[in-house]
Design a protein around this nucleic acid. Sequence first.
DNA 1: ATGGCTTGAGTGTCAAGA
Length: 258
Amino acid sequence: MKIACWNVNSLKVRLPHVLDWLAANPVDALCLQETKTEDKGFPFAELSAAGYHALHNGQKTYNGVAILSRSAAEDVRFDIPGFADEQKRVAAATVGGVRIVCAYMPNGQAVGADKYAYKLRWLAALTDMLREDLQRWPKLALLGDYNIAPEDADVHDPVAWKDQILCSEPERAAFRDFLGLGLSDAFRLFEQAPKSYSWWDYRQMGFRLNRGLRIDHILLSAPLAGACSACAIDKAPRKLERPSDHAPVIATLDLPAP
DNA sequence: ATGGCTTGAGTGTCAAGA
């Protein structure tokens, strides 16, 4: 079983890339972030023709998450229960016995900003949700754009980014709180090339100069981490014309495909 | 230098991203 996540930065713009990528990488589940559309603009038909079920928690202009899956998803749930939030950032469903939680975590804008306080509140609420979900679904994966670079090794210039948004200590502590629930960073279960990132700024040749951050992650509960045989970032789509600024992350689980 | 791209909204240019 293969699962993946990708912040597409507008699904309307990126649909050709997504369809091409799925053809080359026929994963069992793909979590999308920043679809930036309501359901009426969501390409259900095109994805169905490509062999994928889709569930979408979207809104106009901003945010929006989707889970694409080869087999039908069960126990679908949107948003964080009990956390009032206008922003569509979470979709969860069970695929092939694995609980898939797709998250587009807040950016936070700048340390100390109102959006930063919202980010930290949001991360705490998600942690509370996951603590309960793990009781019900021991095989759980949390995939998406975390907007957190967990360690300096995940940052091209740790000095410049020190204590900045995406790298601040409270954000990193929130990431460690996920790990404290018993989740493992799939990417770090394996040897990886140094300077591996999942996002590069569009400006000033960020990708060509590999000035990036690793902020897109797949976290796995213990039963899934034990079954994980590979995790990689696929930089190929970032090299295409009009790319997303994020690259997909894929994890291979030694479980039967659903 | 609060600049530098890209997107959606909407048809001016701005908010937001990371």
